[in-house]
Nucleic acid binder design. Structure first.
Lengths: 244, 244
DNA sequence: TTTTATTTGTCCGTATGTATA
DNA sequence: GTATACATACGGACAAATAAA
């Protein structure tokens, strides 16, 4: 009788998936620390009493989830932990990442003014075609890119915004310059896409890898929309957290 | 002077991305209805006064976002709208999808009991190794798969749960059978991954396409954890919405 | 049923600007 | 500063699938 028969696959749950879950749990529990080398594939196979290929399938799954990365001829290593990125009324990149004890970086890649498209106009509650400032921002933590996004604001309300952003660094400080002390997240829509060449380059990942696509609108305490953005997150470095 | 000079690319915003945004806006605005055929690539190219390849790049982006799908020899068509899947304290699949006027389907693919792994035990606040029920559920709307997920519950608390789920259909009704009238979402963690062969088959998509990966914990009104799950969403059919 | 036109998909190029090493 | 690699944009040709004549 074969070893990998049905008495081992717990009713529809494949062996490799359970092994992947087990190893993931050990990584989370801290059995293997960040950057540490996992035991070799053969060793893991012996431990679970399965074929090496089954272990390879499990490790491939973990690599796909971004928990480990394999290096040919060397071994499989635990990837750096994902940053928990909470989505709340107060969602500020600098606070979130800085609070995690990391060095924050925000770089304005490009900027310009353009007439508002229908989608942007609706979210900012302005007329279609009204001028909006467009900012392309790349944010990073400890030098590693976390997310790349486009932010739109009504141009009329914020003259010379890009210049201010460049000197002030960070959206909170920039808006403060225009007299806005407080703003909050109104809505967040989360989807996924694949990285194109530009995204991949900016986020230092590989084209085709999945990205989290987050569309959001921020409003003043009065409820008036102040900015809207579309951000791409590298999901092997970030994890969006919704607390109820 | 060449056409592709800097006077056409609005300070760092590429042509194809702006065309993609424009067409997306028109789709959202309802200029093209669901299932309708877009103008041909050449026609769009003439309209924006660009090369056909540039339009193709833009349409590829929209296909990646799941807004359109191309059919060789025929044309490019507007894909069905994504289901908005709100993440709130009360997150019930049947209510969300049923409320959108769609036919709900939930199928128990597999079930079994297993000792709780560290991650599951921590989330359910039980001891590692304590028995948990594991359910593999595939959910669909109007016959189209929406998400595939694994749900764990403490086995001791819910004897014969799988059988009950099979007859009652739906988690809410199943938990009601065990005397639980109310439960709410405690935490939700959102990441992304690529579809493997099994996911792709179940969700009727292509291996390698991005998936939304959602880890959640639901609790009783008392705060006691009642179930935890890991769900894979097809992002071209669903959009997670967080309201603040 | 066969032909023809249309439309998307996949190649081959060239030039230019930009980011990186 | 220089060289290299990459991304954008354009131009053309043809294959493959589809739909209509």
């Amino acid at each position: 009788m074969l070893k990998a028969s049905s008495d081992r696959t717990l009713k529809g749950v494949t062996l490799w998936r359970r092994i992947a879950d087990d190893v993931e749990q050990e990584i989370i529990a801290g059995v293997y620390t960040i950057g540490e080398r996992l035991p070799g594939e053969v060793e893991i196979a012996q431990r679970f009493d399965v074929n090496r290929h089954t272990v390879r399938r499990a490790l491939a799954e973990l690599a796909l989830r971004g928990l480990v990365h394999a290096e040919r001829g060397s071994g499989t290593f635990v990837a750096p932990r994902r940053i928990a990125y909470p989505i709340r009324r107060q969602t500020r990149f600098s606070e979130i990442v800085g609070g995690a004890g990391r060095e924050v970086g925000g770089r304005l890649i490009a900027d310009g003014e353009e007439p508002a498209s229908g989608a942007v106009a609706e979210r900012l509650r302005i007329a279609v075609g009204e001028l909006v400032v467009r900012l392309e921002i790349l944010r990073s933590a400890d030098g590693l890119p976390i997310c790349a996004g486009t932010t739109w604001l009504p141009a009329k309300r914020f003259p010379g915004l890009a210049q201010v952003y460049r000197s002030r660094r960070g959206m909170t400080a920039t808006l403060a310059h225009f007299g806005i002390r407080d703003y909050r997240r109104h809505s967040t829509r989360i989807s996924a896409t694949s990285a194109d060449a530009l995204d991949a380059q900016r986020l230092r990942t590989v084209p085709g890898r999945p990205l989290l696509l987050v569309d959001s609108v921020d409003v003043l305490p009065s409820g008036e929309p102040v900015l809207t953005s579309r951000t791409r997150f590298a999901p092997d470095r970030v994890e969006l957290v919704v607390e109820s």
